[in-house]
């Protein structure tokens, strides 16, 4: 019997662990990046919604093969203290639609937790109508629809970058009371949101190998198939953390304080805005 040989991409699918190990032995990764190297993150803000004219704000984020689009639309709620930013993440996988997958739900919830941790000033969402005699109870709700196109790996970092860029781009309309119907209607005037510094944090994803080696920004099917330990860090520009989530189920030596220090020092990826 002759030994069989396969082209690299077939071998990578048949035996991802062995394929991945060969790269690691040589100190490189299947994507060609160094262990601690992030994919360059390209952020394009909608510039007052040139990308989507009907949206209040929008942004596109690209990293490697993956693209994330975020559009922000507005609405009003009658409930007090319910105004705010609500995100919904969808991952497009070749036209199939149906109930949201577990990954989409987890991403949506994680994004929501990051929004809560950022503590956006609630006065942003209060509707101030100067002529109105009665105080207005309605509050503004911003719905962020985030779509991940061509997902290539864990994408919380891209989703958050897209949301932050879209919120920076968002111009919310000022409201007035319609004299005839007494309904609250948006005017043509717009104002930007007052966003806290804590919102402008970058989320970095790390994979931890069984040996304890840290891989920044895991991406691609091989890395995803072989890495079972993940760490997400949300770090603001002044070094504060808003989120640290770690799930390490498969390490030989465990994760000690030194390893966490190493991960935290690597966190905070550079972002280039177009």
């Amino acid at each position: 019997m002759e030994p069989r040989s396969f082209p690299p991409d077939v071998f990578a699918r048949l035996a991802p662990e062995i394929y991945f190990e060969r790269f690691l032995e040589q100190g490189s990764r299947p994507t060609g990046r160094k262990f601690t190297e992030f994919r360059p993150l390209l952020v394009q803000q909608g510039r007052q919604s040139e990308l989507a004219p009907s949206a209040l704000g929008s942004a596109v984020v690209r990293a490697g093969q993956a693209t994330v689009i975020c559009g922000i639309s507005g609405g009003l709620t009658d409930f007090e203290n319910e105004g705010g930013v609500y995100a919904n993440v969808e991952i497009h996988r070749g036209g199939r639609s149906g109930a949201p997958t577990a990954e989409e739900m987890v991403l949506t919830r994680r994004t929501h937790e990051l929004i809560l941790a950022a503590q956006i000033d609630p006065s942003n969402f209060k509707i101030d109508i100067p002529d109105s005699i009665e105080p207005c109870r309605k509050e503004l709700v911003l719905n962020a629809s985030i779509r991940v196109l061509s997902r290539t790996g864990p994408c919380l970092d891209l989703v958050w970058a897209a949301l932050v860029a879209a919120l920076n781009d968002t111009r919310i309309p000022l409201f007035a009371e319609d004299e005839r119907t007494h309904n609250i209607i948006p005017t043509c005037e717009r104002k930007p949101l007052v966003l806290p510094e804590t919102l402008v944090s970058s989320v970095s994803t790390f994979g931890l190998l069984k040996s304890g080696e840290v891989l920044a920004d895991p991406d691609g099917p091989t890395e995803e198939a072989c890495i079972s330990n993940y760490v997400n860090v949300a770090k603001t520009d002044n070094g504060l953390l808003t989120k640290f989530s770690l799930l390490c189920t498969d390490t030989t030596d465990g994760v000690d304080a030194e390893k966490i220090g190493e991960i935290l020092s690597l966190a905070g990826r550079p972002v280039s805005t177009v």
Binding site: E113, L116, A117, Q119, T198, G239, L240, L241, T242, K243, F244, S245, L246, L247, C248, T249, T251, G254, V255, D256, A257, I260, G261, L264
Partner: peptide, 24 residues
């Protein structure tokens, strides 16, 4: 036996030192 860190879910506003103290 050694205790191995499996999961950590930290949310809010905290520093690196605070996180390490929390883990301790």
């Amino acid at each position: 036996v050694r205790f191995r860190l499996v999961m950590c879910e930290s949310t809010g506003l905290f520093t690196q030192n605070e996180l390490l103290q929390v883990l301790e």
